[in-house]
């Protein structure tokens, strides 16, 4: 209860500061519409279908991209947990490619992928695979020797050890990677839509800015933020179901 009250107070604080900036005109309202004008534009955009359709397109791309990235990255991490030499080969590549920003890849990727779903898929996969892979690989590797030796005494070796001992122990950290990647997936999709899209939230953001519809641009930004929160909540919900056993064990969750 107290936690919810604190969240509400901090949100109200942000809205109050936002409105104050508008009232004292640090930035003219033409360029920074107040919270009410933004919410009104958001409501109108959702009701007219412009924002609701764009939101649906963006969310579908981000969620599918996140699912595909999770499958690929987790598969890769499991392989590297089973075959140490593979990990030695993949880790330097992951570290090398991880810092590349998705926005820098879009213009070049159009040349070989065109303006199609493949472009969105490639950018989201590229951006999301590494945080999931690195978290998962590190977690799989850091499973305690006591656990591994105990499992071995029960006959768990090779793939059965990886899948039945290391993977369950690593799942909390795997979900941390997926949570980070959830936000990255949304950013990657919106950036791709802004730079090379023909629909979706990123396209609407760019289109409204280019046609001088400032409140609508802010409405799009607000919607992107809310979508990010919703995606995070979705991942947390799935995590709480999959690793319910772990929830009561950590200090942060107990508090």
């Amino acid at each position: 209860m107290m936690h919810k009250a604190r969240v509400l107070i901090s949100l109200l604080g942000v809205l109050a500061v936002w409105q104050l900036i508008v009232w004292i005109e640090i930035v003219p309202e033409t360029y920074l519409p107040g919270p009410l004008a933004t919410v009104q534009a958001l409501w109108e955009g959702l009701a007219s279908g412009e924002l609701s359709l764009a939101l649906l397109q963006t969310v579908v791309r981000a969620v599918l991209g996140l699912l595909a990235s999770t499958a690929v990255a987790l598969g890769l991490a499991l392989m590297t947990a089973r075959y140490q030499r593979l990990r030695q080969a993949i880790d330097p590549i992951a570290e090398f490619l991880r810092p590349l920003p998705p926005a820098a890849l879009v213009p070049l990727s159009i040349f070989f992928l065109g303006l199609s779903w493949k472009l969105h898929a490639f950018i989201v996969l590229f951006a999301c695979i590494w945080p999931i892979y690195l978290n998962a690989a590190a977690a799989l590797k850091s499973v305690s020797l006591v656990q591994i030796r105990s499992a071995a005494s029960f006959g768990y070796e090779g793939w059965s050890r990886v899948l039945h001992v290391q993977l369950p122990a690593a799942l909390p950290d795997v979900f941390t990677g997926i949570r980070i990647a959830g936000a990255i997936a949304l950013i990657a999709v919106i950036v791709t839509e802004m730079l090379a899209g023909r629909d979706g939230l990123g396209f609407v953001l760019n289109d409204t800015a280019m046609t001088l519809r400032i409140p609508e641009t802010f409405a799009g930004l607000l919607l992107a933020m809310l979508t990010g929160l919703a995606m995070n909540a979705l991942v947390v919900l799935v995590r709480n179901r999959v690793i319910a056993w772990n929830i009561g064990m950590t200090a942060s969750n107990r508090s």
Binding site: P107, I110, F112, G114, L115, S116, L195, A196
Partner: peptide, 19 residues
């Protein structure tokens, strides 16, 4: 009709065969 955001994006679309 495929909207793009700038000239280089249009050029990339034509070069890739998307347009």
């Amino acid at each position: 009709m495929i909207p793009v955001q700038n000239g280089p994006a249009a050029a990339a679309a034509v070069a890739s065969g998307s347009a």
